[in-house]
Design a protein around this nucleic acid. Structure first.
Lengths: 166, 166
DNA sequence: TCAATTTCGTTTCACTTGCAACGAATATCG
DNA sequence: CGATATTCGTTGCAAGTGAAACGAAATTGA
């Protein structure tokens, strides 16, 4: 193929990049419009909700955010009163992060809306197509795992093996 | 679903976001390592290669980059000697952008490598799966088109209708 | 026990991005 | 024509991001 025939529109990384950007843009309405949350903040919030206490490191290991990004998100969320930081008693280097009542409430408000959007986007998909989509994306992740240059993938938060459908 | 059961790992926007980030990271090796190109620069370069002359606006309309991003990318690419800017004779507001010989050569060098990566990532996919993947992503785009808040999608550079497989 | 190393979270810095504003050039319409 | 509005590309600015450096705390190993 001569390079002047190369078409960005058929190039998978470009497709995914644009699709992801559009989806994030749409969902930032849910995260941001009402509570002013950024995507990193939303990820942190969601992840912390899984357990009583959680360290920055735990979050970093799970939600594909850089350590500084997590640190900043946590700081901001504390300022907004959605969570509380305290140094761990066992290990004074660690920070225990815990959602406040407000944090839980905000999350309970946002999460259903986010799921509605996801559902709407997939509304034209049959059950099989839905399964296929996740399976195909999973396969791409698997391929990327072979390249050390593609940043390594984080383990599932719930510890379950990957690739199973919901 | 209670929000503390919500799992980011099964949330489509998150999945896509991470996948796209990983893929971009991997490909930045191709774009950047040898010639120091950023993704915006790569997109501009690829798009300009399609025609003799091209304005900033044309590029902006096609490659999902903000106008300032295109402008900066073009400026930098001119500094590197990969393209030439000149004010259009017909309309002095427009900038004619043209690849230099070097620009074409760089592109001829990079493009095949990018395609190899794409191919490798899809190497485990059957023809049908490949088709399915593109079709499903296309459908997601179609759904997003219904929401004005998701940034509108740009037309295909080659003017062909969407959704046809390569 | 104590020095060297490692880990954790934060901070700093250079860089990129998105949005609004701007000047220059053209188009529109009385 | 001539005033107003629009379009094009650039620039300024505030916010976000990634990588490296840093101090504090813990672990290791002589």
């Amino acid at each position: 193929m001569k390079s002047n025939e190369f078409n960005l529109d058929d190039f998978l990384p470009y497709q995914l990049s644009v699709l992801s950007a559009r989806m994030n843009r749409l969902l930032s309405k849910v995260y941001g419009e009402q509570y002013g949350l950024s995507i990193p903040e939303w990820r942190v919030l969601v992840h912390v909700a899984r357990r009583e206490k959680m360290s920055v490191r735990d979050i970093h290991k799970c939600v594909n955010l850089e350590k500084p990004a997590v640190s900043r998100a946590v700081t901001k969320l504390e300022a907004t009163g959605l969570l509380i930081k305290s140094t761990s008693e066992d290990d004074h280097r660690l920070v225990d992060i815990e959602l406040t009542k407000d944090g839980i409430e905000v999350l309970n408000n946002i999460t259903p809306k986010a799921l509605v959007y996801e559902k709407e986007l997939l509304s034209s998909f049959s059950t099989e197509e839905n399964t296929q989509l996740y399976a195909l994306l999973e396969r791409l992740h698997d391929e990327l795992d072979k390249y050390p240059d593609a940043m390594p993938r984080k383990p599932r938060a719930d510890g379950r093996p990957r690739g199973l459908v919901k």
